[in-house]
Structure formats: C-alpha cells, structure tokens
Amino acid sequence: MKHIYTGKTKDVYEREDGNYLLKFKDDVTGENGVFDPGANTVGLTMEGAGRAGLRLTKHFFEVLKEKEIPTHYIDADIEAATMTVQPAAVFGNGLEVICRYRAVGSFLRRYGLYAQEGQPLDAFVEVTLKDDERQDPPISEDALAMLDILSHEEYKELKGLTRKIANTVKDELAKKDIDLYDIKFEFGRGKDGQILLIDEISGGNMRAYKQGEYIEPLQLEKIMLEM
C-alpha cells in the first residue's frame, strides 16, 4: 500500500484496488490535555481510542447504509483498527461541517454575548475551512460559492445531508438516553460527483451528555455498543 497522508487522528493509505485504507490512531483533538472535537490540534492520546472510534464509526456507517445515505464506507477491521473506503475528493483543502443542538464549545465562545451555555439550537449547521494556520475559520454559503469551493446547489445538499445524518446519530444515541450536543462531519465528492460522508463518526468528533454529564469518547463507545 502507498502512504498518502498522516493526519491528526488517522493515517491514509492507497490500496492496489484503488480504494483507500484509514488507520485509526489513539490521538484525539483538544488543547492542554482536554478533549475538544472542534480543536485543530492533537490534545491528548487515549489508549484504545482508535479501535473505540472505529467500532462506533462502523456502527453508525452501517446504520446510514441501511437508510441509503451516501458515505465512503466499505468495511472495517476492528482488530487492525483500519477502515476501507472508496476514494472521494474533498472540497478545496477540506471542510468541516458541524451540526449543533446546544450552545457549547466554539459556538458559545463566539456568540456568548447572545447565547447561554447549553441553550437549545435547532440543528444549526456551520461550515469551517480546514486551515490550522487560521484556526479553521467559519465560512458562509456565499463565500464558499464565490471562492469556487462549493456551489449554492452543493451547499444546500451538504446542509440537508448534515442534518439528516446528525439526526440519525442523535436518534441512535437517544436509544441509550444520551443527548447529542454537537457533531462534526467531513464530506467529499465520489467518483461520480455525488456528495459522500467521509472520515468517521465517533466519540472523538461529537459532544454527548447523559443526565447532564459529559461522556468521554471511550465511555461513549462502551455505552452505545454494550450488549
């Protein structure tokens, strides 16, 4: 296999058949040793986080597959902490799309003049550029179109898919009496130009709470997948 990319939480390899292999690592994003799904730096290493993230990702991607929601997922090998996916081209140098149900994290830091901590939000969709140097700045639909990153039509599709996927995850968590506060996704274009959900869906890219208490990524996987 050909090594393509070394990321914060996973490495990417190209397979001989043209598909890609994602190798999950035990690193999670955050700052000063505190986990934060919206951070653009590796904040800490949690033993077992890679496999835990992959188990949960596999669970959610297979739920989405049943609902015929387009993703890049093909299959996963939990023991090896790898996931096989179809190729997809990112938008520009990469976008992150956040769906927010509660005012926490960077939303609260930016809009704290008007928002109260934990205030309910109506599946608010926010797009940011993957740009570490500029602290992943938020970007509007018009700017995305003007900069030729995403057309208005693609933005509407992206926003609709984000809410559909986030609501699916929210419903799955609710089965275990867990509340989803926010979740971060990445998307790309498949070979036929179709917009696909890519990357992962794990505790490392969401904030989830149970009875008002934050659930760490490893604990979330245990609660969700316990028999």
Score class of each variant (00 low, 15 high):
I69V: 13
G94N: 01
K67C: 11
Y114D: 10
A115D: 06
D192R: 08
A81S: 15
L21W: 04
I165P: 00
C99S: 12
G33E: 01
K67G: 10
A88I: 04
L197S: 04
V85C: 12
A81D: 08
M83V: 12
L22F: 15
G204T: 09
D26W: 10
Y13C: 01
M224A: 01
L150A: 10
F124T: 11
E31I: 10
I139G: 10
V42P: 03
D131T: 06
M206G: 04
F61G: 02
Y209Q: 05
L54S: 11
R110V: 05
T71W: 04
A88M: 01
A115C: 14
I198G: 06
V125L: 03
M206R: 01
S106D: 12
P70T: 14
A52H: 11
I201Q: 02
E66P: 03
D122E: 15
E31H: 13
L147C: 10
E226N: 14
T168Y: 02
P87E: 06
Y13N: 11
L218S: 09
Y155R: 05
G160F: 01
I139D: 07
G33H: 08
A208G: 02
R55Y: 06
K65E: 15
M1E: 08
G48N: 12
L22E: 10
I149A: 05
M1V: 09
K67L: 15
K10P: 02
E96F: 09
P37C: 10
I69L: 15
E213F: 00
E213Y: 04
A145E: 12
T6Q: 12
P87L: 09
L196E: 07
E157R: 14
E126S: 08
I78N: 07
I165A: 02
N40R: 11
R55A: 13
I4D: 02
Q219T: 14
E14H: 07
E14W: 03
V104G: 05
I195K: 07
G92Y: 05
D132T: 12
K58V: 07
P70Y: 13
K58P: 00
R102V: 01
G38M: 14
K2M: 11
K8G: 07
N205Q: 08
L144F: 07
L22H: 14
G94L: 03
L56T: 12
I223Q: 03
E154S: 04
Q194A: 14
H152E: 14
Y214G: 00
P137K: 08
D136F: 11
E154M: 07
V63R: 14
L95T: 03
G188S: 06
G212H: 03
E186P: 02
V42G: 05
F187N: 08
L225F: 07
T45A: 10
R55Q: 15
T168R: 00
H152P: 10
Y155D: 01
R207D: 01
P137I: 10
P87I: 04
G92F: 02
D199H: 09
Y73P: 12
